[in-house]
Write a protein that binds this DNA or RNA. Structure first.
Length: 580
DNA sequence: GCCGTTTTCGGCCCGACTGTTTTCAGTCG
């Protein structure tokens, strides 16, 4: 992990879990969780901070500041060691299974000696859990379902973590003397999870590069070292590989390492028909027995009679024919976004105050920002009409104070994230909803309703004239929770009919809608919102992953409402004129 | 363990759902 904030976040969350498992003070546990979250979302790098500097972060007091300082200095915290020793690491991993919390994890350990997920599954299948209080047939089945969801991602990394690791590795390779180095594979295609981080490096002599690679700080273990390739594993078991190519074969090498297997196979076939051999280390004219220079990917694709294909499309889903015909789509990009339509502040569960979120959004060059804190039915957020109206006043005042146009000429929209109840109703009455510039409506409960009920509630939410965006429409959390069961085509049709946009939520563990559903929704004529769902200033950058997901679905900017100028967006929202 | 203060201890995010222990503990958003 590259960022010390993220390392400390993981450390403090681990300790919080251990407190819960060992039956420690629940408030102490919460204090550690809160500090972890605050440090993760802290806008600055904590690497250079001393204990006093750390204490300035809200939620970090003297005790945690000292422990974090000790960790940053020595790489460990002595006070944690005793608690750690009392709980096998696998017991904590049990808590990642839905329906298993600290109490049940500890019961499994104490009563049945279970110290890991595999053991738990084995115990259930062998009937060893019968008679154990709290683990009736329905719970046992829920556990097995949860394990199945987790295994779908089976140790794969989320995009943001994979990206941080890749960035560190690429920098390390360049520092080791490569002419250039970057990541390829599933990460460059921006698949939602990444099994291994695969890098390509350009150098004339691979030997020293591979040697330096296996010595990089994150490489806990060398898996293999060949003539031009090497693979290492991180302490967390994540695989990182590198292939070294000659600088004049960089384009071919990068393309070979980037495309999905089927895309690369199609390129290879196309090359063969032209008397060329497309290999991981370059492009070769077979008859002449000579290398064809491909210093860039553009040269490689051109040699095959193709336009350059954006990495996010390289899945063999029609992109090669389109590239041959000069018919590749103009994809939406992160830069095309003029604003963010789903963000939170510390009025509910965000970390940053309104003014800080506005400032950070302005620094991104946005023309507008919608602030959409949680509505009251998410009880723990304790939202009230008074509180959200006070926020509206603050937001309007902020905008007025900045010369009527917000920071940097940015306009502010006051919104909320409503909760879609089991019947499709939302938190506030129509008259109150009419006062918002924008309402995002999302499902936050009753994930287990049957298909008909889920479909009905989503369609009813679309039909609510005050709801303009459906947030994280399928509510999946990668590796944790599957999608709700709904007739998505019926929902997409309702969105198109009612002029309700679907969100592509950029939170790395959501990416919801995901690319294949975006493709399906497009066929119904739906419009999309690419949102960060930011709970801190840093998380505004999550739209990077929204844009990547949109690209994988071949989405052009014209179909994304937050690439539009404000006037057009407001017409779509039905706030300045009739809806389209 | 943090925070705010009625400055040194008391409160801290609330409540619905679920399965099952049939009266409520555990989990979750």
């Amino acid at each position: 992990m590259a960022r010390p904030n993220d390392e400390v976040d993981a450390l403090l969350r681990e300790y919080a879990d251990l407190i819960a498992i060992t039956g420690g003070d629940a408030f102490k546990q919460r204090a550690y969780e809160k500090a972890a979250r605050a440090i993760r979302g802290h806008p600055r790098d904590i690497g250079g901070l001393d204990a006093a500097g750390l204490r300035d972060i809200p939620g970090v007091g003297a005790s945690i500041a000292d422990k974090v300082e000790e960790y940053l200095r020595t790489g460990r915290v002595q006070a944690f060691d005793a608690t750690r020793a009392a709980v096998p690491p696998g017991v904590r991993r049990l808590m990642s299974i839905p329906s298993l919390g600290p109490k049940k994890a500890m019961t499994l350990y104490r009563e049945r000696g279970i110290t890991g997920v595999d053991e738990l599954v084995e115990a259930i299948n062998a009937g060893r859990l019968s008679g154990l209080s709290g683990f009736g047939p329905r719970t046992r089945e829920k556990i097995l379902r949860g394990v199945a969801v987790a295994r779908e991602t089976g140790g794969r990394m989320l995009l943001d973590a994979a990206h941080d690791l890749a960035d560190e590795a690429a920098q390390g390779l360049v520092a080791a003397g490569c002419e250039r180095a970057t990541w390829a594979g599933a990460l460059r295609r921006m698949r939602e999870t990444v099994g291994s981080v695969d890098l390509v490096a350009a150098a004339r002599d691979p030997g020293p590069v591979l040697e330096a690679f296996t010595a990089l700080p994150f490489a806990a273990r060398t898996v293999e070292v060949g003539r031009v390739r090497a693979a290492v594993a991180t302490a967390g078991g994540q695989r990182v590989t590198v292939r070294v190519v000659a600088p004049d074969g960089w384009g071919a090498g990068l393309a070979h390492a980037t495309g999905a297997r089927a895309h690369v196979a199609a390129l290879r076939e196309r090359a063969a028909r032209r008397g060329l051999r497309f290999a991981p280390d370059g492009l070769v004219d077979v008859d002449a027995g000579e290398r064809v220079a491909t210093a860039t990917e553009e040269e490689l694709y051109a040699a095959l009679g193709l336009d350059w294909v954006p990495p996010t499309l390289r899945e063999n889903r029609g992109e090669i024919d389109a590239a041959a015909e000069g018919a590749l789509p103009a994809l939406v990009t992160e830069d095309a976004l003029r604003g963010d339509l789903h963000t939170h502040t510390d009025l509910t569960d965000g970390l940053a105050p309104l003014a800080a979120m506005v400032e950070a959004a302005a620094a991104r060059g946005y023309a507008y920002l919608a602030v959409t804190d949680h509505a009251p039915r998410l009880r723990m957020q304790r939202m009230t009409e008074e509180k959200i109206l006070a926020q509206r006043e603050e937001l309007r005042a902020l905008e007025r104070g900045m010369g009527g146009r917000g920071a940097g000429g940015m306009r502010l929209l006051h919104g909320t994230e409503l909760n879609i109840d089991p019947d499709g109703g939302v938190d506030w009455p129509d008259a109150f909803l009419a006062g918002f510039d924008l309402c995002v409506a999302s499902i936050h409960s009753h994930f287990g309703l049957d298909r008909a009920a889920q479909t009905r509630r989503l369609i009813r939410a679309c039909e609510n004239p005050h709801v303009q965006v459906i947030g994280h429409p399928t509510t999946r959390k990668i590796g944790l929770r599957g999608r709700i069961d709904a007739d998505l085509d019926a929902v997409f049709a309702a969105c198109a009919r009612t002029g309700t946009a679907l969100e592509i939520n950029g939170h790395p563990n959501r990416l919801d809608l995901h690319d294949e559903h975006v493709m399906r929704a497009r066929r119904h004529g739906v419009r999309f919102a690419l949102d960060s769902d930011a709970h801190s200033t840093r998380e505004l950058a999550n739209v990077r992953w929204s844009a990547a997901t949109a690209q994988r679905a071949w989405l052009p900017a014209a179909e994304v409402i937050n690439t539009w100028p404000l006037a057009r967006l407001r017409r779509f929202l039905g706030r300045d004129a009739e809806r389209p």
